[in-house]
Design a protein around this nucleic acid. Structure first.
Length: 310
DNA sequence: AGACAGGAGCAGT
DNA sequence: ACTGCTCCTGTC
């Protein structure tokens, strides 16, 4: 395909695993097309390819300024230094070794917030579907290369705030529809200033986000880590919780969240958010299958102790 | 068939 | 403060 109108650029980062990063559950718009990853970033269509010498980006328009994608990909991160700052224990050693180029990326805070409101009790493919529907129906069309599927920007806060609950439910949001609507309207009304959050101290920023409907501790921490880049934000979902419990407190019968939070704060250091992402990836790719079977059984048994297995 | 999902909000204790 | 139920909807 001729693409003389496009622009491309390459960076010599060799410790960036595109596939691991784009499938790690932090962003939901990336699609694998002919061996490259394609999405809309900062209103532009972009394709990223892994090359032997680094990462290559292609855009669909003439483009001489690449700061938007460099910031999105956090190309300035010193990954070796970050990995070296992890706790020196067998678990984190395995987590590091399981994926050497996993990265955190910096998304638009609003898209990130909306996506994670949609994520509650959903699996990744379903979240991707919701985000796609929202973009198709409320976003603006983006210029894509010929032969590619049409794409839209993620809808603006104003556009979603002007939608109806029914319209959002039709995007498969279910009971999350009023949450997303309420959050969008909270931002439009000025009661939450997403730009101001960037300058806040972590705890203050978290509290501000948690005043939004549908935003609890976990989703707030996801936005703080994946959208704002707060280095010590540490989202605790059921997988991380189970992993920390079993790997660090195997003899504790019931691990309380408050105790876990104190451990996290004191243990994982200045790049705790990165540590969380590596731990999460490690658990999902190496330990996930063997653990998922157990929880199902144990939950059923706790509900009806008389039932025996087998 | 029915439990469950990468969670939040609510009532009840 | 903690527990248990409910909220849509698709999937196994």
């Amino acid at each position: 395909m001729e693409m003389t109108w496009a622009s491309e650029r390459e960076w010599g980062v060799t410790d960036f695993d595109l596939t691991a990063t784009m499938t790690s559950g932090q962003a939901f718009r990336w699609r694998l097309v002919d061996g490259g990853w394609e999405a809309v970033v900062a209103g532009r269509w972009v394709r990223l390819e892994q090359s032997p010498s680094g990462i290559r980006a292609v855009t669909s328009a003439r483009n001489t300024e690449w700061g938007w994608i460099e910031e999105y990909l956090r190309l300035g991160d010193n990954l070796p230094a970050i990995l070296a700052s992890f706790p020196d224990d067998p678990t984190m050693h395995s987590a590091r070794g399981s994926c050497l180029g996993l990265r955190l990326i910096r998304q638009d805070p609003w898209e990130c917030l909306a996506s994670f409101i949609a994520s509650s009790s959903k699996q990744i493919v379903q979240i991707q579907e919701i985000v796609r529907l929202l973009s198709e129906r409320f976003g603006d069309p983006v210029f894509v290369p010929s032969g590619r599927l049409p794409l839209w920007t993620f809808p603006s806060v104003e556009r979603l705030a002007a939608a109806t609950e029914i319209e959002l439910r039709n995007c498969k949001l279910g009971f999350r529809a009023p949450y997303l609507l309420g959050t969008a309207r909270r931002i439009v009304s000025g009661r939450l200033n997403l730009t101001a959050v960037r300058e806040m101290e972590l705890g203050v920023a978290r509290d501000a986000l948690m005043e939004c409907p549908g935003v609890g501790r976990k989703i707030a921490d996801c936005v703080l880590l994946f959208g704002y880049g707060f280095p010590t934000a540490f989202p605790v979902d059921v997988w991380i919780r189970k992993a920390l419990h079993r790997l660090y407190f195997p003899r504790v019968r019931r691990m309380r969240l408050a105790r876990l939070e104190r451990f996290i704060e004191s243990y994982f250091g200045a790049n705790a958010g990165y540590a969380q992402q590596y731990l999460f990836h490690y658990v999902r790719t190496h330990l996930g299958r063997q653990w998922s079977g157990e929880s199902r059984v144990s939950k059923r048994r706790s509900r009806d102790p008389r039932r025996s297995v087998g």
